[in-house]
Design a protein around this nucleic acid. Sequence first.
DNA 1: CTAGTTGCAAATCATTTGCACTTGC
DNA 2: GCAAGTGCAAATGATTTGCAACTAG
Lengths: 149, 149
Amino acid sequence: MDRDKELREVGLRVTVPRLKILRVLEAGARRHFCAEDIYRALLDEGEEINLATVYRVLTQFEAAGLVTRHKFAGTHSSFEIDSGQHHDHIVCVRCGRVDEFVDKTIEARQEEIARRIGYEITDHALYLYGICAKCRVEGEQERIETAPG
Amino acid sequence: MDRDKELREVGLRVTVPRLKILRVLEAGARRHFCAEDIYRALLDEGEEINLATVYRVLTQFEAAGLVTRHKFAGTHSSFEIDSGQHHDHIVCVRCGRVDEFVDKTIEARQEEIARRIGYEITDHALYLYGICAKCRVEGEQERIETAPG
DNA sequence: CTAGTTGCAAATCATTTGCACTTGC
DNA sequence: GCAAGTGCAAATGATTTGCAACTAG
């Protein structure tokens, strides 16, 4: 809520661009945004912002621990407000929808595997890609509508 | 061994650049290369090749199922000869070493999670990042050598 | 012969950076 | 006031592409 405070607490000055970007990130409808998404969202609201600033601010937010950066398949980075609790992602390859999940068993196995191979884990990335329920239904309807005969 | 055949079998014409690149990929010392790696390796051997060609050929190899493309943390794509058997990767953040592993439990959990959330998995990426045994030892020695007193 | 390939140079795309100006504290 | 932040335009780095010349089948 109190975004001024949120920024100060992580050691960042409160500036207009940072507040705008933070507002978009916390808006609620979505949790994952690439820099362009945020840039466009603000322009669409009639807010002025520079894309380079969006990139700079997101990088600072990441360094400050406010957001987490993800590299899903494809070209650009995706950012989400850091909820504090680790989780992994499943991404719909049709519509881009992103869902989150946590799995203790997988986490444990990862540690186990790393130990066996002789690594000390510093980080990990687990992305599942697939087709979400909604997209599967839509695909099915299309097939029916365009069916021959 | 018979790279001519290998190329023909996946429907690709046998050309000099493709043979050179395939040779590097199969060389054995390493299994994971980015386009630059292959380009440099060939130049170092005194072979002529164009970087754009390396990129084009790798993309064709991927489409033909000869190689798999990975996006480890960082900027460039990494390619490896497709062994046919799925596996995941653990990457050393110090030296870039890449190890491979397979874990049935993790695979099974992924399917389970996807089903629960309503997705039909098409692909997945699991990358563990850490420090390999060798790099940990080196780091330890350095600390001793530069220790005060 | 001729469609597929290559090399080269120029283009792209996401992201970063230099710099002069502006703003937060 | 002054360091930090911003906008703009130009630079970057990995990868791609247009095109004319070249080769595999």
